[in-house]
Write a protein that binds this DNA or RNA. Structure first.
Length: 550
RNA sequence: GGCCGGUUGGUGAAGUGGCUUAACACAUCACCCUCUCAAGGUGACAUUCACGGGUCCGAAUCCCGUACCGGUCACCA
């Protein structure tokens, strides 16, 4: 009995060879220096901020080099899979402008290296595993979960490194006959890789972010195929897929670094050249006094849907992540305002050395800048698209009179230094509701009076204004009228004069303006009053002033 | 516990032996501008780079030790 017999007993139906697949998936015909990268999420739920972060890096290094960025679905864990997760990932990627060149979705395969869904590549993995068994580098293991648990407990007691290695790797010494017998008896088993490493030995591992590292060789006989589904584990699928798909650079989270020795060893077992690795820091979250990996379960801001629902422009989210990826991104972007984030010269070495806290304040700042630079047409379209999905009330407002809406959002907009008060589309409604008469009438309002609070004085100011001074034909005339009114009512029309001798006046032009503003909008903080008045129109202003104390 | 990495302001960080009196950006605060707010302008904000020791004419930068933080040690990825 030979290893060949064992391999046949396990995979009687696998007739292909590695050569066949190597022929089928030809080496990519790309010029030197092109990066082939992938985003390889497992469809276990919603798209995660960390996932987007990985995807961005993969995308920019591939695009910048003229290479390929592809999407691979890692669905080997059927228990954790969630319906619709793949769709969400693809849609998110596309929405954020990170379109993969190759992917598989909804029965459609784009690219020469598919299937791009791991569960559909079962035969490929099994072919590779079969080969490993034939050459004696893999074997079936019949240890039960319970036996493994006991073994680990034992190892802890006698203070040995835990894991299936060395003398603890019982099934590695099982005779071929016995193994075949057990398989015939339908005993459950997994396939393990037979490691030839020595944990005491170090080898040099070159991580493109961390630089040269000296890691211990792996001596654990890792599970490479699961028993029930006969699908590979991550470790094995990574080796086979990234080899066959021609991945040149694997960008993945730092949590993978410690299993890199296993991967390297498997590549070597096949005689394949491993890809280059970039292990990235994790995005962290402050939890009390300590830090932890940002978590989808505990942190709403870990899910990309959080940003979509709040209405952040996609590019703002990307740029905020870029500042974490390489902190010189912002400086570069300021110097090259017309370039896209994909033009940025990403440097793995410049990535932070430890996990970064994601700063929502920073996101707001980036987002405000981006939104302030939009034209009114752009903002109109973006905000309507957002409202269509997430806000019935804003949508109604916009559609009531689209031109009116555009005029409102255009206040202090299309100019050299535009107003920056919108960080996300969900802010808009709260900033503009008072521009609509019907809402203004029905809404419960708190008037935010400042210096002048006396009812009769306010009435007096308002009636004087609408009877004698209201003129919306031109901003200078408008403001000049307010100043004249100040003089008439005993308020300082000139702020400098007022500051010199405040006791000579009842107040100043700012106080008067504030009364006009609050009486009109209920708010003491609004954009340019003249613009607001002009848009509202005389009738509306008069109505609001007249009805104020009724 | 073993192994691997890390530790520069509230945050992201620049920095690789003298150019650093520690860049830039966010946040915060003050002032200016100003009809309010936002914006914009000016300035403040780490006498110090986790701590201790060492090398050196000179250290955030190199070495050693300690502490703390993170990752990993699954038939999860």
């Amino acid at each position: 009995m030979s290893n060949k017999d064992l391999a046949d007993a396990i995979f009687p139906n696998i007739t292909m060879t590695i050569k066949y697949y190597e022929n089928k998936y030809k080496k990519r015909n790309l010029p030197d220096g092109c990066y082939v990268t992938r985003f390889a999420p497992s469809p276990t739920g919603y798209m995660h901020l960390g996932g987007l972060y990985q995807a961005i890096i993969n995308y920019i290094i591939a695009k910048k080099s003229g290479g390929i960025f592809y999407l691979r679905t890692e669905d080997t864990d059927k228990a954790r899979q969630i319906d619709g997760a793949v769709e969400l990932i693809i849609k998110t990627l596309n929405a954020y402008g990170l379109n993969p060149d190759e992917y598989e979705y909804d029965g459609k395969v784009v690219g020469e290296y598919g299937p791009y869904v791991q569960s559909e590549r079962k035969e490929i993995y099994q072919t590779f595993i079969k080969y490993l068994i034939e050459i004696g580098r893999a074997y079936p293991c019949f240890c039960t979960k319970q036996e493994l648990d006991e073994m680990r407990e034992n190892q802890e007691i006698i203070k040995v490194r835990t894991g299936y290695h060395g003398r603890f790797a019982r099934c590695s010494r099982m005779s071929i006959e016995e193994a075949i017998e057990k398989i015939k008896n339908k005993e459950p088993y997994v396939i393990r890789f037979r490691s030839n490493g020595n944990f005491e030995n170090k080898f040099e591992f070159d991580d493109l972010r961390q630089g040269k590292l000296f890691l211990n060789e792996n001596d654990i006989d890792e599970v490479i195929m699961k028993s029930e589904t006969m699908l590979p584990t991550y470790h094995f699928a990574h080796v086979v897929d990234d080899y066959l798909m021609g991945t040149t650079h694997v960008v993945r989270g730092e949590e993978w670094l410690s299993s890199a020795p296993k991967h390297i060893q498997m590549f070597e077992a096949f005689g394949f050249k491993p890809p280059k690795y970039i292990h990235t820091p994790l995005i962290m979250k402050k939890d009390g006094d300590s830090l932890r990996k940002i978590s989808k379960r505990k942190d709403p801001e870990a899910s990309i849907t959080y940003y979509d629902e709040a209405g952040y422009p996609k590019i703002a989210v990307i740029e905020s992540l870029m500042t974490i990826i390489n902190s010189n991104y912002e400086e570069w972007h300021t110097a090259n305002p017309d370039k896209k984030f994909t033009d940025f010269e990403f440097s793995a070495k410049k990535m932070s050395t430890s996990g970064a806290l994601y700063d929502l304040m920073k996101l707001d700042d980036i987002s405000k800048n981006i939104i302030s630079k939009m034209t009114k047409e752009e903002l109109y379209i973006e905000s309507l698209n957002w409202a269509d999905k997430y806000s019935e009330s804003l949508k109604k407002l916009i559609l009531k009179d689209e031109d009116y809406y555009k005029n409102i959002i255009n206040i202090e907009r299309e100019q050299e230094k535009p107003r920056k008060d919108i960080a996300k589309y969900s802010d808009i409604e709260n900033l503009i509701w008072y521009m609509y008469d019907d809402i203004y009438r029905s809404k419960e309002k708190q008037y935010d009076w400042k210096n002048i609070t006396d009812k009769d004085e306010i009435k007096n100011i308002l009636s004087t204004y609408i009877n004698k001074y209201i003129d919306l034909s031109d901003k200078d005339i408008w403001f000049n009228n307010i100043k004249i009114m100040c003089d008439e009512l005993g308020y300082a029309s000139n702020m400098k004069e007022y500051k010199k001798n405040p006791e000579n006046y009842k107040g100043n032009v700012a106080d008067i303006s504030t009364v006009l503003r609050v009486a009109l909008t209920s708010k003491s903080m609004t954009p340019d009053l003249f613009e607001i008045m002009k848009l509202l129109g005389e009738d509306s202003i008069k109505e609001r002033y007249n009805n104020l104390f009724k």
